[in-house]
Design a protein around this nucleic acid. Structure first.
Lengths: 222, 222
DNA sequence: GTCTATATTGGGATAGAC
DNA sequence: GTCTATCCCAATATAGAC
């Protein structure tokens, strides 16, 4: 069945789904049916956890046909990749635009830290994300896609705080990873203790720390 | 069967679990049967994810009887709490002892950052932890226990980097939360991209950042 | 309790209408 | 190019026989 060697030779080997959407298409740029599916999946995930995420339930919630998942995303993992992308990336776009409008320097760093604070405050998105993590890590196809997404995310952080850093600069790479980690980790602590935990304090400290670090780094290199 | 009202009266009414172990008993201090159960649960979780964690499978893997879970931990969530505690806390004890042996100052901070690096490098533990997160967040009984564990963990970080900080000091609280977040977040990135991602770079940056921050903070307050 | 038959569910695939 | 209606296969759950 996998080879389907009986196909007519002139049939270009199983009509490839016309457009399995790449995972990095922003939600707003998707065909409306695809967007409806992603948004339905998100609602189901937030409401009922990963178990609730069946193709049938998603199609029902979206008011679409089950086969549309295959049509637009190839398979369920493709849809999940698009979902994770929307959870991580869409939040970043606004902060990104804000950041680029500012000149490099302390002010930009604090503005970026504040943007990260707002991203981490979206606990619903992070609840959905953490619900997916076990499945992502266990999925051969999904994990590399999410890994790429995180790589992009780290690069964004580097550009915000150390514009023009060399790609091989290990300190810069460490900073990018660290900022990404802080957002995820603080969001996790907020989910675990929504009443008592104060996420903003961490980002205040973060802004000051990155500023002090970048300053020291500039002095050292001059 | 749950009521078993036919039991002889002189049988002291379902021996109440003599010690639903508090979640913060270190693994090494547990009765051997309890420890065997926790370790079996850990192996199953690492091998097969959360779905594999049924009471039957745990008892089988541990070579114990299913009822022992109720006896030692009250219920499944009690066992899971002890498991999470062992995943987070046991790693910390050694680093904690090391830290206390050092005088306050830059050296201690870098030693602490290196301890955190080693904690984050235990990807198996973090795989288990992240597999449990969706269930923890959704569990009314488990979530507060893990929240307390994280509170303790944040306090430990504060003591390592800002010994003697006031409990109400928001900057100190932010730093404690931030260090905790970095460990979790970096471990997540390692799990997502075990081949390419360089977790150590983040902790190098972290040590320098915290040092620069604490230094600046001391100058400001003097 | 253990096992097997059966029903249900879930992910994936295909054919064909428009 | 978009979409609907089915179908298939595997895994799981349930039920009843023993």
């Amino acid at each position: 069945m996998s080879g389907s060697s009986d196909d007519h030779i002139d049939m270009p080997a199983a009509p490839p789904p016309p457009l399995p959407l790449p995972a990095d298409v922003p939600l707003t740029a998707m065909p409306s049916v695809a967007r409806a599916l992603v948004e339905a999946a998100r609602r189901l995930l937030v409401a009922g956890g990963f178990r609730a995420l069946t193709l049938e339930a998603i199609a029902l919630e979206a008011g679409e046909n089950k086969a549309m998942v295959r049509y637009y995303f190839g398979d369920k993992d493709g849809l999940l990749a698009a979902l994770v992308d929307s959870l991580i990336r869409d939040n970043q776009v606004a902060a990104n635009a804000e950041m680029r409008a500012l000149q490099p320097g302390p002010k930009r760093i604090h503005a970026w830290a504040d943007g990260l604070r707002r991203v981490a405050a979206d606990t619903e998105s992070f609840y959905a994300l953490f619900s997916l993590v076990p499945h992502i890590i266990g999925s051969k196809r999904l994990r590399p896609r999410i890994a790429d997404l995180y790589e992009w995310y780290r690069g964004l952080n580097i550009e915000a705080c150390l514009p023009g850093a060399e790609a091989q600069d290990r300190h810069a790479a460490g900073l990018g990873a660290l900022l990404t980690a802080v957002v995820d980790g603080i969001a996790l602590q907020s989910l675990l203790d929504p009443d008592r935990f104060d996420p903003d304090a961490a980002f205040l400290a973060l802004g000051d720390m990155v500023e002090a670090y970048v300053e020291k780094r500039r002095e050292a290199s001059s």
